[in-house]
Amino acid sequence: MADLAISATLPKPRPVSGRFLASELLLIFGRRRNWAGMAVLAAMPVIVSVANKIDPPTGGGGEGPDFFSAITSNGLFVALAALSIELPLFLPLAVATIAGDSIAGEANLGTLRYLLSVPVHRTRMLVVKFTAIVIFAFAATLLVAGTGVLMGTVLFGGGDLTLLSGTQISFGEGLLRLFAVCVYLAVCLSAVGAIGLFVSTLTEQPIGATIAIMILTVGSFILDNIPQLDWLHPYLLVHNWLNFGDLLRDPVAWDGISTGLLSAGAYILVFVTAAWARFSARDVTS
């Protein structure tokens, strides 16, 4: 009976609270180490644009969509070039750092035991942590693109631009397509984040988790470039990432985009579920 009286005085929990997520974002975006990382991300479009201003390119080449030869023709291409430079290493590394930190970082500091005894339900913890990772993936991609657009239009101007398929579109539509590219890449990077969330539940060493994620990402880039393993390629994490160029054709080649989104979605589903299966039953001894 006494218990009933006590429970009655306890305020009801809010079913959904954004405070924990807000606190999580404050932690990510308020941390100096992450500022440094974001500064590196933003530095690439600056370097690319300045270098091309000083010494304009003469011809194209290389894998994937080629934006470099077009950089001097329109500022938006700086953003696209910067995204394609940062896609193999810097962007996944940034996401891997945040994702590796998510659970392992709290375990390493010991703050995990205190959060869980607040109490934060373990499923809620994973939901909040993964949401923060996804938000960071979007922020990182938009940061690179935004800096690129800014530097590009300042140094090379805006105006109409010519798509990879040869069609002319307005600057406004160009911005819209660039935004679509960012969304596509952020979803792809969220798959890295999902793997990171899972790895982060396995260890108490955030750096170890980050390294493991990077080995997976870079490793799958390497496998994707070995022609003898072509049967494996469609299943690789990074195989569809460069499909973002399809958003710059007229009409948009949706096949590649939907395949990429489906693949990223499958990775997210599998690894978030794995993280939940692992974390919800784990003994927290840190």
């Binding site: 006590i6 429970s7 306890l10 929990p13 932690l27 500091l109 010991g110 703050t111 035991r113 205190y114 005894s117 607040v118 109490p119 339900h121």
Partner: peptide
């Protein structure tokens, strides 16, 4: 746990903060 732990304050194996 969800009902009880809000009424429980705990200090476990020393302090841990960011």
């Amino acid at each position: 746990a969800g009902r009880v732990l809000p009424k429980v304050g705990a200090l476990v194996e020393g302090p841990a903060f960011h």
